[in-house]
């Protein structure tokens, strides 16, 4: 155990927490700017999926450093886990729905991975009828 003055560590945690809050709010702002300024749907999806999650994680780290109790940290870790799990899924689904409903210009795409099988409706393979 270190015999350092506990006040030093408290102050340090508060300072780091303040820095994390500022940085997280800045990333959230950049996500807001991106979602307003970017020109098409997929670019906006990018702004939502990446800086937004990073900003939120930084904000929650700030809260954890400020509150300093294990139950709270557990719940904040849960929020971070949910964000990391759900944000790619929702961005992917929005992008795919955009491609399917013709809101994405195929000329914008470098690699059109959905072009082949999403352009035509998918058909179930013909099942051979079982002989009686």
């Amino acid at each position: 155990m270190t015999q350092a003055d506990p006040g030093v560590w408290t102050t340090l945690a508060d300072v780091v927490a303040a820095a994390c809050l500022l940085l997280g709010a800045y990333f959230s702002l950049s996500a807001g700017v991106g979602v307003l300024r970017f020109g098409n749907l997929l670019a906006r999806t990018h702004a939502v999926a990446k800086p937004q999650v990073l900003g939120l994680i930084l904000l929650l780290i700030g809260v954890a450093l400020r509150v300093r109790s294990w139950p709270t940290v557990t719940m904040l870790a849960l929020v971070v886990a949910f964000q990391l799990l759900t944000s790619p899924v929702s961005a992917h689904m929005v992008g795919r729905a955009g491609v399917r409903t013709g809101k994405v210009d195929p000329a914008d795409l470098e690699v059109d991975e959905l072009g082949g099988d999403e352009a035509e409706p998918r058909r179930l393979p013909e099942e051979p009828t079982a002989p009686r």
């Binding site: 927490a17 997280g24 709010a25 979602v35 999806t45 904000l59 809260v63």
Partner: peptide
């Protein structure tokens, strides 16, 4: 819907800032 996603995340961030304060 994606702009609403940003709004929800900002709301989470605002509540987090309040909790930190």
């Amino acid at each position: 819907s994606i702009a609403f996603d940003v709004l929800t995340s900002v709301l989470v961030g605002a509540i987090a800032v309040e909790a930190a304060w």
